[in-house]
């Protein structure tokens, strides 16, 4: 039986505090180029690592983005993964989720022999949650989303997962290969293993593929491959509130607030 091969999709995102919007032009200003691993992807990493602890096998990290994401990816590698695949090409830039999922799917195909593809629930910047189902569709694989737990039957080649739903949960079983999105905060991501730090810095730990090496269709990637187009920007309407500050001792404030609440209900 072949060993379990897990791909974890990792998006590198700008730190929220690094994003500023120019009040005049409404354009994004990146104050710095400091980035981080999309926090929900750490939960996907942890799920992959615990599967590896349990069943053995190996973990490949897959990311689409510029090469300056490399240091962040090496940190994730040192958590206990085996290799990094970075899909990087100026032609990939400006991708919406259709082009992103196509490109990631081509990456998964080229890696080859993949049983599970783990994603975060959603990214902290785009936050569409559209990548996991879109990726599954391009790959023609099964999908399980919002999982808090997963187990694998390697003989029957099945994945069984517990999915969070409104007010409860469901347990679903699907054939491998399978794309999974992992519920944010469902586990405690481990720290990087410091003994792996220098190993993770070695040159051949990472494979970088551009559009040519992936043999992607030029009209499927980046901006040209993205149907959604931003056609305008505007300032959000602002609802004016009273902005009345309550003052006095704590008890006076509490009394006054209780009165206000009574009146308002």
């Amino acid at each position: 039986m072949a060993e379990l091969h897990i791909v974890v999709c990792v998006k590198i995102v700008p730190k929220p505090e690094e994003i500023l919007v120019d009040p005049e032009t409404h354009l994004l200003q990146r104050v710095d180029t400091r980035s981080e691993i999309n926090p929900p992807d750490m939960n996907a990493m942890e799920m992959a690592l615990s599967l590896k602890d349990r069943y053995g096998g190996r973990i490949s990290l897959l990311s689409m983005g510029p090469t300056y994401f490399e240091p962040n990816l090496r940190v994730a590698l040192a958590m206990g993964a085996d290799h990094i695949y970075l899909l990087s090409d100026p032609q990939f830039a400006g991708a919406d989720t259709l082009a992103t999922t196509y490109t990631l799917a081509e990456g998964v195909r080229k890696i080859g022999g993949v049983d599970l593809i783990l994603c975060g629930e959603e990214s902290s910047d785009g936050a569409t949650g559209q990548v996991p189902p879109g990726l599954a569709e391009w790959l023609g694989s099964s999908q399980l989303t919002l999982l808090t737990e997963v187990s694998i039957d390697q003989d029957k080649r099945l994945a069984r997962g517990r999915r969070e739903i409104k007010g409860g949960y469901e347990v679903l079983e699907v054939p491998l290969p399978c794309v999974i999105s992992v519920k944010t905060a469902c586990n405690e991501p481990r720290f990087m293993d410091f003994s792996l730090r220098s190993w993770a810095e070695e040159r051949d730990r990472i494979t970088i593929w551009d559009a040519d090496s992936l043999a992607t269709e030029p009209d499927h990637i980046g901006l040209p491959g993205s149907p959604t187009v931003v056609t305008g920007l505007a300032e959000a309407p602002y609802r004016d509130r009273r902005r009345e500050f309550l003052t006095g001792t704590q008890d006076e404030i509490a009394q006054e607030l209780a009165e206000i609440l009574k009146r308002s209900l």
Binding site: L20, V21, D125, T231, L233, A234, A236
Partner: peptide
């Protein structure tokens, strides 16, 4: 609504 600060973006498909 785009990134943070009260900006609206309009998106279309041709």
């Amino acid at each position: 609504s785009g990134f943070g600060g009260g900006v609206l973006a309009f998106i279309e498909m041709a």
